[in-house]
């Protein structure tokens, strides 16, 4: 069992998180990929559970989701894999996906399963703050599952403060208002946005995602935040032959 304390440890900086879709490229690849990522030096993981209609995702992650579904991935199977995965991987794990599969699985059952297999938190982009607070906060909190909220350059300060109050691990900062897979440009407005966030002195650390694909964008993002998430670029690697052998070099090149 792991803890969230990498997010609060002042010694830790430039945390690298990798996103990949469970069940892609093959149904059974989830565990080996997670293990190689930890060995290669990833600090925490986001494991996507696939959905037929992923509106926040660009073509690369959409494709991985579609393939994972064809491979037969479901939440039931994923939790079985996670049980084994937790014997081999100790860095924090967050599940990321859309709300409908969770709703069908049962929100409470989902939280209990997360707790049992040692998932630290979940990122469900289409579960908004109002619905979370009204309907599901209690069941998340009573099982110790962090619900990670997203903020964008368009999110108001008032709303960011509210999200900060509700968050327990980190806040997921979108580099721009975009679907996944767009290149991050740390131009003046993005830089102003990151600076503005830093000056708000939020209680939760910030992790920047969307558009981080190489050492340059990773470094720029983590100049402003506790960590950053690489998704699309890694999922693209998984489409290559012998991807497993390439994972260490991929992570080394980022850090």
């Amino acid at each position: 069992m792991t803890t969230n304390n990498i997010f609060t440890d002042p010694e830790k900086s430039r945390l690298l998180s990798i996103y990949f879709t469970a069940g892609y490229p093959t149904l059974g690849s989830t565990i080996d990929i997670a293990e190689s990522l930890e060995k290669a030096g990833a600090d925490f993981l986001e494991i996507g559970f696939p959905y037929s209609d992923p509106v926040a995702d660009g073509p690369v992650i959409q494709h991985s989701s579609e393939e994972a579904l064809k491979n037969g991935m479901t939440l039931e199977i994923l939790f079985t894999q996670l049980r084994e995965l937790r014997q081999r991987v100790s860095i924090p794990i967050f599940l990321m996906g859309y709300f409908n599969p969770v709703l069908q699985f049962g929100v409470e059952k989902f939280c209990i399963a997360c707790k049992e297999v040692g998932v630290n938190g979940v990122i469900i982009p289409d579960l908004p703050m109002y619905e979370y607070e009204e309907l599901y906060r209690d069941v998340f909190e009573s099982n110790g599952i962090s619900n990670i909220f997203l903020i964008t350059p368009q999110t108001s300060e008032e709303r960011i403060r509210k999200i900060d109050q509700l968050s327990t691990s980190f806040i997921y900062v979108l580099s721009s208002n975009a679907t996944t897979g767009k290149q991050l440009e740390v131009n003046n407005s993005a830089s102003d946005y990151f600076t503005r966030l830093a000056s708000m002195k939020l209680k939760n650390p910030l992790v920047i995602g969307f558009g981080i694909s190489n050492a340059d964008t990773f470094r720029k993002a983590t100049d402003h935040a506790k960590g950053a998430i690489v998704g699309t670029a890694f999922v693209r690697l998984l489409a290559e032959e012998n991807y497993a052998e390439k994972i260490p070099a991929f992570i080394k090149a980022l850090k």
């Binding site: 509106v55 926040a56 709300f99 982009p125 289409d126 579960l127 908004p128 109002y130 619905e131 909220f149 997203l150 903020i151 964008t152 368009q154 999110t155 108001s156 709303r159 979108l174 208002n177 975009a178 679907t179």
Partner: peptide
Amino acid sequence: EKGYYGPFGGAYVPEMLYPN
């Protein structure tokens, strides 16, 4: 006023769509 019809409705959108 919350955007619901009984248990149905709401605005289940990612944060990127929230301002719109």
